[in-house]
Nucleic acid binder design. Sequence first.
RNA 1: UAAAGCAGUCGGAUAAUCGCGCCUUAUAGGUGAGGAAAGUCCGUGCAUCCAAGGACAGACUGCCGGAGAAACUCCGGACGGCGUGAGCCGGUGGAAAGUGGGACAGAAAUGGGGGUAAAUCUAACCCCGAAGAUAUAUUAAUAUCUUUUUACUGCCGAUGGAUUGAGUUCACAGGCGAUGGUGCAACGGUGAGUUAAGAGCUUCACCAGCGGUACUGAGAAGUACCGGCUACCUAAACCCCGGUCGGAUGCAAGGUUGAAUUAAGCGUUUGAGGUGUCCGCUGAGCUUAUAAAAACCGCUAGAGAUUAGGAGUAAUCCUAAUACCAGACAGAUGAUUAUCAGGGAAUUUUCCCGAACAGAACACGGCUUAUGAACUGCUUUAUUCU
Length: 114
Amino acid sequence: MLPKNYRLKKRSAYKATYRTGNTIHYGGITVFIGKIKNNDLPTKIGFVVSKKIHKRAVKRNRIKRLMRESYRLLIKEGNANDKYMSLIFVASSCLLGKNFSEVDSVIKKVVGKI
RNA sequence: UAAAGCAGUCGGAUAAUCGCGCCUUAUAGGUGAGGAAAGUCCGUGCAUCCAAGGACAGACUGCCGGAGAAACUCCGGACGGCGUGAGCCGGUGGAAAGUGGGACAGAAAUGGGGGUAAAUCUAACCCCGAAGAUAUAUUAAUAUCUUUUUACUGCCGAUGGAUUGAGUUCACAGGCGAUGGUGCAACGGUGAGUUAAGAGCUUCACCAGCGGUACUGAGAAGUACCGGCUACCUAAACCCCGGUCGGAUGCAAGGUUGAAUUAAGCGUUUGAGGUGUCCGCUGAGCUUAUAAAAACCGCUAGAGAUUAGGAGUAAUCCUAAUACCAGACAGAUGAUUAUCAGGGAAUUUUCCCGAACAGAACACGGCUUAUGAACUGCUUUAUUCU
């Protein structure tokens, strides 16, 4: 799990990020990119798995946790992108049932494209 | 040994590395998902809206006793059904107050009551009833008329008729509904008597239902005897009877802090306040716009948990001790690796899997549904051996 100051928490912050309209699609993940940062605060990250993907909470939680863990390791290695105020990762149904290494490779490639 | 029935256990473990929520005495330590956390089907607590209340609509419920805060809850029993059995299943008052319905098949799905009637039996005749139509009449009656009281294939051959060698025969009149067929169900069932055959026969016996009496039981109910009434099914159709409730909305309840200015409209016993109706009660404000954010409380010490003892067939209750055991809010409880318990393939080695259902959101008691592998105990039936 990410530390608290790395998390995107407010509903208004989500809305503001969506409103910028910059997106990247790759490997079943859509990334919404917020505004360019003008302070020293860390980039805030949000993860979204909708009920359309699976109706059971356990399966949705699994996808979220794998994505979060992968991004956490990126931050630890220092490879994360920190030019923007916020990023939102939206999963699609093709991530269902994948293991950590598969999700990890997708996240790394998506972050490299930002 | 095999096949069943019932009850229950478990819901992976250990280590390493990297992380997250909450709490505290804060470089650290403690703690952190389930048996169903799920479905939201019942029932409570709690909160707000009118401070209490009445009547009705309405809702729920339905064998007996007990437990429980209560429950479409649990335990024990009665009755009925299923099973060789251990056991399992059951929304289990009333169809003998009334109305309605009964697919297909079948002649017919209840198609009324009584009299003439004697010698039990017969209607095309009569009275009452029901339904329909018409007229008078004007919303309730009267008069008249019509309809309604079953019988297909059959069976019988007493009676009448015809016929024949013959009580022999019958596409006749007549008698019957027992037999056959249909159906979940055919006027309670079975056997005898009677009869030409039969039946609805103040006939006989047994069984079932119904009514009564006695005994046993706390009661549901059971047993015995008497009467001789015979009544299709459906109440998870309306309905009747007994009982319980009889407000609504749900923690996004609701409260505190913060921000907070004016305008317009309606209103004086009218409107408004509780959200099925009526009554009652309160007694000045209500509605709309400006108007949009945030934080905290509620929030987890409990109809609790664990252990031990006692009461009770049991559900459950009582007593004592022990500790405090999730509280998030884009929402923590995780990720990876190794080993092991375990399972499968194969049978020296080795390889594969290593789990299912599923994620707290105010709390609790139930119910229902989902769920991999393995294991334990008791019981029944069958077979074999001693």
